[in-house]
Amino acid sequence: MEAGFARDMQTHHAQAVQMALIVRDRTSDREIRTLAYDIATSQQQQIGQMYAWLDVWGLPQASSQPRMAWMRQGHQNMSGAAAMPGMATATQIKELEQAGGKDAEILFLRLMIPHHQGGVQMAQAAVQSEQPQVNRMAGAILAAQKAEIDLMRRMLAARGAAETRTVPKSGR
């Protein structure tokens, strides 16, 4: 379980770092830039820790098992990065890359909230690990990402935006 968590959370975190760096370059809003910097630096540091765990444990960075096979909550039969909870699609990443200003901020927040919710699901599955370092990191991820989800929801509200896009009804 621990190796699967380390491998899959590295992939999950890498996308969060990618999105954070994209929005940081697309806005001048200090609050968003600070949040993006915090996400990028903390999650990149955790990627390094998880990489090191696998090395110390004598395990390869990649696995022959499908992604998320380590979770006991229904993701076992899924494969590929899209099977990870909360991952943005390539189209969504491209849209973020093309957005600017307030539009980029809102899109980033709308993508990062479910991304963090997915990270919370993954961390909850790992928080009872028998490896103390895995247990500590999973707990830290839970605390940080839950707090950031609350912050991002407030940031969306401050921008007059809903958490998800509303689709106009046909005929309007």
Rank of each mutant, 00 (worst) to 15 (best):
Q45E: 10
M152G: 04
G100R: 15
Q44H: 12
A90K: 14
E31L: 13
A138C: 05
M71Q: 06
M50A: 00
R154Q: 15
I141P: 02
Y51W: 15
V127I: 08
M1N: 12
L109T: 02
D25Y: 03
A81W: 10
D103M: 08
Q124M: 07
G139K: 03
S63V: 01
A104C: 06
L142Q: 02
G4V: 07
Q117W: 03
A138F: 06
Q98W: 01
G100F: 11
Q10R: 13
A123K: 05
G171C: 08
T34I: 09
R30T: 11
Q15H: 04
G86Y: 10
E95F: 06
Q76K: 13
A81V: 13
V23A: 04
M112W: 01
I32S: 02
A88D: 07
Q76L: 00
D29M: 02
A52H: 13
G160M: 02
H116D: 09
M71T: 08
A52N: 14
Y51E: 12
W70V: 05
I113P: 00
I141M: 05
G139C: 09
S63T: 12
D29L: 03
A147R: 12
L59M: 13
Q121I: 07
Q46V: 10
A157P: 00
P66S: 13
S42E: 13
A40G: 12
R154Y: 09
W57D: 01
G48C: 03
S42D: 11
V127W: 00
Q18W: 02
Q128M: 11
T89E: 05
A83L: 01
M78N: 09
I93P: 00
M71C: 08
D25H: 10
G80M: 07
Q92H: 05
G118A: 02
V120H: 08
A162K: 15
Q10L: 06
G4C: 04
E163P: 05
A138P: 04
P66Q: 08
L142R: 06
A3Y: 05
A123F: 07
E97I: 03
K169I: 11
D38Q: 15
R154N: 14
R110D: 04
Y37H: 15
